[in-house]
Each structure stands twice: as C-alpha cells, then as structure tokens.
Design a binder for these strands. Structure first.
Lengths: 209, 209
DNA sequence: TAGATTGTTAATCGATTAACAATC
DNA sequence: TAGATTGTTAATCGATTAACAATC
C-alpha cells in the first residue's frame, strides 16, 4: 500500500501535521480542509484527497477534529516512534546538525529523532564528543548498528567521499539517508535517499533573482 | 520566458551543471543525453527536452560538447555572477552555514555566493564575527542592503520569529529566501522562498523506514 | 555510407483541481 | 431544516516518456 502513495503526499502530510501541532485546540475543535489548505498553501480538494488516502477522518458539514486528525497523522507518519539516527562527518555542518538534533529533543513536542552515533575518520575528532555523544571512527559503525535499529544515516561528509560512506553504511544495514553533500548518490533498490543541498538550493534560487 | 520554465527543470539543470563540472573534459569531448541522464537519474528524453527549452546545444549523432554545454548552463543559471547573501540567525545552524558558505568559496570552482552580512538580535552575538564577517543587529540590515544588491536571505532563526524576520527583510528589499526554520512562511507575489527543513526531511524519510 | 544521437511531436502517465451528491 | 463541508468522481492540467524524422 505504501508504494502507491506518492512522495509528494507524504511531504504534505508532514506539513499538515506541523500545522495541526502548532494550533492550540481542545477536544471539540474542528478545522476544515479549506483552513488547512490555506495554512499549507495547498488546494482544499488536495487536502481532502491526501487525507482520504488513509481513511475517513472528517465529518460532513463540520470538518476534521483537530486532536483526532493530529493523532491519525502522527500514527501514519510514525511520528510517535523514536527514530534512531547516526551522523557521518563531524565538520561544520555535521556538528551543527548533531547539536541541532540533540538540542531540539527537549524543545519540540513530539520530537523523536535520537542521535545514536557520530562518525568521522579524522583522528583529531575521533574521541571527542558533542552534546554527550562520542565521535567514533567510521570503522566502528557496525558496533552501533548491531546494538539497536539505526534507521537513518545523515551524510555530512565531503562530496568526494559521500558515495563511499553511503556504500559502507548500507553494508552495515542502514536503509535511509539524508544527504547534505552536493552529489547525487546511487543507492540500490530498497534504500531511500533524500537530498538536501544548500548550494543547489541557492543556485536554484539564484536563477530567479 | 522564465515564467514558463517549471521549477523542477531548473533543479535538474543545476544537477546537470554539477555533473558536467565534475567531469574532466577537453575541448573535443562530448556527452550524450543518455549519459547525462544516467548520472542524474533522469530519462534521456527529459534531458534533451530540458536543454531544448533554452537552445540547441547538441549535435546529432554525437551528443553535447561538454565544455560548451557547461558554459551554456552556467550562463542560464547565472552561475557566473556573484550572488550576495545575508544570513539571519547566528545560532548553531546559522553559524555552520556562514562558515560553510564562506569557506567553500575557496575550494569550489565556480562558486559565487558571497556572505555580505550576518544578523542576530542577541547582544552576546552582535559584535562578534565569523570568518571575518561581523555579526550585526538585525536593525542594521538596511545599511547592508542599501550598499549593494543583496539578492538572497538565508533564514536560520527560530521558527516562531521566522515570519517576522522575513517580513522585515522584504521591507528592506530582499526578494529571495532560503528558509531553514520549520514553518511555512507566507510571502507576497514577486518574492521567492525555498524551504529546507531537516526535521521535515527526516520525518518524511521516517515514513518509509 | 552506416550508426548514433539530437530535437521535437505525439502518447502516456500522474497529479491537481473542480464539481457535486451525501450527510452531518 | 438550512448551511456547511466531507469524500469521491470526473475534468483538467502538466509533466514524463516513447518514438522517429532529421542529420551529424
């Protein structure tokens, strides 16, 4: 069933959930698809259709119960589970991400990403720690992945070694990546990779300005 | 003309340019749409169509001249111009981005983003500097935007003030934003905003794992 | 010339939006 | 009941892919 849901729908669902989370609501508060659409910059029919893919959550003439829908979306997106991640590369960006993700844990409400490991190959960095999480040598990855279920690897290494690091991580069982290195990485079927590249984003933006 | 080009095409063009830049090539080296497509994970017809939107750059039976196409894409994307940016928010992420963007300047070949200003409102940060760029109070923004043409604002402030900061920046003439805060920001027509949100990316990834 | 690959038109596919009966 | 809004079907829109004549 998950195969038939387009990526773009999931991205919107994440937005809807954030919108619902940002609203203070009591048990009797409802919101219409038009209101959600307005906040998410999405057509109201789109909102209804996205939600209808997963069930009938609304009430005709009234709308969607805010708390109820929030709960449903949380369940659909698995936002109630804790998700263990590791970070590859503890340079500027990797360090910032490590701090950001470990710090946010306390502030955000249903936050659920736990940084289980930081990896680098620079001897000057291995052995240090960030927000209480030790930086290990990449070749110790298996010891971390073996212990729990690490779902996601955040790639913050230089572009020229990113493919190599991802290959290695896949061999140690990691199946999802968020890649910050400015390269397109090839992964076998069954492995997901999501790219987030500041340079490309800026360049795209630059075209229009 | 630019209005008719879909965003997604521009994003692919950025990818093609990076691919071409990564290839070592002499003046007589050619590449086919199939090869580019392979490296970019895109159908070859797509590649040809994307390029054909801007001109006829190829030669039947041979392909596209690597150096020539690189030059054309650079011109199309404006990757030869220098693009001045400012960064709002000098927390973990803002600092990392500032360092990343100023440092990269030396390493990457046709890199062209110049950090012209860093802004915060925290008195402990205002007056310090990062990689030689001073951190100013947000209310000094106008003095920086007035001096040159600042095209892009990078938003690395907390989510709850992001909209406010963007509004203010728009009032000072900035027309393009790369937003790292986990909120959907409303902007008037004529202003572009691109979102890059680690939390959402991870959550989206989490759905599939 | 024969083989390869472009540029482009036509066909397909999928996603978005409009419309409306069902119903709270 | 009257008004509002859902869930869903049908219509539209746009983007991707296939196909192929042109031609290097």
């Amino acid at each position: 069933m998950r195969n038939k849901i387009p990526d773009v729908v999931i991205r919107r669902l994440v937005t809807y959930l954030r919108i619902l989370t940002d609203i203070e609501a009591g048990p009797d508060d409802y919101i219409s698809s038009a209101q959600i659409g307005d906040l998410a910059a999405v057509n109201s029919a789109q909102v209804r259709k996205d939600l209808a893919l997963f069930g009938e959550f609304g009430k005709q003439g009234v709308g969607y119960p805010i708390l109820g829908l929030r709960k449903e979306l949380t369940a659909i997106l698995g936002a109630d589970r804790e998700m263990n991640i590791v970070i590859f590369g503890v340079g500027e960006l990797g360090t910032a991400l490590a701090r950001y993700l470990t710090t946010r844990k306390e502030t955000a409400p249903n936050y659920r990403f736990v940084v289980k490991g930081l990896f680098d190959i620079d001897p000057a960095k291995v052995g240090t720690e960030i927000e209480g999480v030790p930086v290990r040598h990449l070749n110790e990855l298996e010891e971390v992945t073996a212990s729990g279920d690490i779902k996601i690897g955040v790639v913050a290494v230089p572009a020229n070694v990113a493919q190599e690091v991802v290959n290695y991580a896949i061999s140690k069982g990691i199946r999802g990546f968020l890649n910050f290195a400015p390269v397109r990485i090839k992964v076998p079927p069954g492995v997901r990779i999501q790219n987030s590249d500041v340079t490309s984003d800026l360049q795209e933006l630059g075209f229009y300005l």
